[in-house]
Design a protein around this nucleic acid. Structure first.
Lengths: 197, 197
DNA sequence: GAGGAACCTGAACCTACGTTCATTATTATC
DNA sequence: GATAATAATGAACGTAGGTTCAGGTTCCTC
């Protein structure tokens, strides 16, 4: 093990400027923003990016990791509200709605919801988010509102298929069409496979 | 108007070889396949591609145009079956299912369903397909199975959000979740906006 | 089969982007 | 404040892919 010596003052400063710039640029332009642009926004040369992050993937991953973390926070918050008496199904749908609304305007969140995340960066938050998500789903099912066959993966699928490039109206419409499939009310228990034939 | 003289024999031959190669390559590798690869597959130099199509976009468009055409054919066929007594809702769902199944394996169809199509190439087929689609939808509504607020655009949306990269199982699951939203059975008439609150 | 137009060839051009590294600057230590 | 370690710089490299065009070839016409 090589002992890690503390970062020099200027290095620490730049590290922060780089992550700030990367976050801002990715949010505005998406993960395809060139490294040169991030460097310029950070007021730093490209080489410096590579001193702090071995590859572009690593830098983007660091930014997305923050988003995964925030998403996990949100799920846990919703879970806490349910524990305090809020309706699980309501919390679930609001969670989805809020996430989609953010992802539609924030290219970083968009990338996050569409599964860019690498193991390395999602491991922690994913664990947290998953646990809370499972609890939310259990309660919603116990309430008889969420269809018993719905899984966490179904919600991930829901997120990953949102038409993020579309207008607000289209996205709302899409939710109207998709959400019923998650309920016991719309999809009677006991039937499996596609609802129509 | 410049009078268009007939193509020379070799030019005509190459034109066909190019379109064949483009179709094959795009089907296999998607619209990002390099022009050089298409040229090689066609047994022709890159420059020749540009003699027949001004840009890559034009060549890709020509290939996708064929797919739009075929899609229009399918819709019209379904419509004809309904006119002959088949159930409209059944035809609609089978239409969707079939299209998705093809798109999952054919990268050209994938691009087509995801709205790459330019005005120039979709104008004709789009008109045809739309007309037949409208008829299908009308009948399905009259039968009381399709929700009265569902539009052709909703079906386009359905297609454009399919998780085409996912496994067959995931795609099937997705249909199970999404299709109920299109029915009167699952989404009671008279409620608008997201089904859950 | 000669002439000229139409067509084809493919190396080269251009742009874009991730990444590297020799050189220069900054910081920490004594 | 001298020294060495650490960090920053930015021009340059490599790759990739769309596009062009000067020079050579094929085809059609008479």
């Amino acid at each position: 093990m090589a002992d890690t010596r503390p970062l020099r003052a200027d290095a620490l400063r730049n590290r922060e400027k780089i992550l700030d710039a990367a976050r801002a640029q990715i949010t505005r332009y998406g993960i395809d923003v060139p490294m040169d642009d991030i460097a310029e926004a950070a007021g730093v040369a490209v080489g410096t990016l590579y001193r702090h992050y071995p590859t572009k993937t690593a830098l983007v991953g660091a930014v997305l990791a923050e988003h995964f973390d925030r998403m996990a926070d949100e799920v846990e918050a919703a879970d806490a509200r349910v524990a305090a008496g809020a309706k699980a199904m309501t919390e679930l749908t609001e969670l989805i709605t809020r996430t989609i609304r953010v992802a539609a305007r924030d290219h970083a969140m968009k990338a996050a919801t569409q599964g860019f995340g690498t193991e390395e960066y999602t491991r922690g938050p994913e664990e947290r988010g998953m646990t809370a998500m499972h609890r939310l789903i259990s309660v919603a099912k116990a309430d008889g509102e969420l269809h018993p066959d719905v899984t966490v993966e179904d919600f991930m699928l829901l997120l990953s298929t949102v038409p993020l490039e579309a207008t607000d109206e289209v996205r709302e419409r899409w939710l109207t069409l998709v959400l019923p499939g998650f309920t016991t009310a719309a999809r009677p228990i006991g039937r499996s496979g596609p609802a129509l034939r």
